[in-house]
Simulated assay, not measured.
Amino acid sequence: MKSAFVHHHRYATREDAKRDLFGYIEGYYNRQRLHSAIGYITPEQAERQAA
Rank of each mutant, 00 (worst) to 15 (best):
E26I: 04
L21C: 07
G39A: 08
V6A: 03
L34M: 13
H9E: 11
Q49W: 00
I25T: 10
H35D: 11
H8R: 15
P43Q: 10
P43I: 01
R10L: 08
A17D: 03
Y11L: 05
A46D: 07
P43N: 09
R14P: 01
A12V: 12
H7D: 12
I38W: 03
E47K: 11
A50Y: 08
Y24R: 13
R33L: 15
H7Y: 14
G23D: 08
Y24A: 08
K2V: 14
E44R: 10
R10D: 05
E47F: 07
G27L: 03
Y11H: 13
A12L: 13
K18G: 00
I38Y: 03
A17N: 05
Y24Q: 09
R33D: 04
K18Q: 13
L34C: 06
G39E: 07
K18L: 06
G39Q: 06
E26G: 04
R14Y: 08
I38V: 11
Y40M: 13
L21A: 09
G23L: 02
R31K: 13
A4Q: 14
R31W: 00
A12H: 11
G23M: 02
G39D: 04
R19L: 06
D16W: 03
K18R: 09
H9T: 15
K18E: 13
K2I: 13
R33C: 14
M1N: 15
S3T: 11
T13E: 05
E47H: 09
D16L: 07
A12D: 11
H35E: 08
G39K: 06
H35L: 10
A37I: 03
H9D: 04
F22M: 05
R19T: 12
A12Q: 09
Y40W: 13
A51E: 12
F5R: 09
A4R: 07
A46S: 10
K2D: 11
R33T: 11
R14N: 07
Y28H: 10
D16P: 04
D20L: 00
G27R: 03
T13N: 03
A17C: 14
I38L: 10
F5E: 06
T13Y: 02
L21D: 01
Q49I: 00
E26W: 07
Y40V: 01
Q45L: 03
R19D: 07
G23T: 00
E15Y: 06
P43T: 03
H9W: 09
G23E: 05
Q49A: 03
G39W: 03
T42D: 02
Y11E: 05
A17H: 02
R33K: 14
R14G: 01
K2C: 12
Y24D: 02
G39I: 00
R33H: 08
R33P: 01
L34W: 06
L34V: 06
R19V: 09
F5G: 00
G27S: 11
Y11M: 11
I38S: 02
Y29K: 12
A4L: 09
R14S: 08
N30Y: 02
H7R: 08
R31I: 04
M1H: 12
G27M: 05
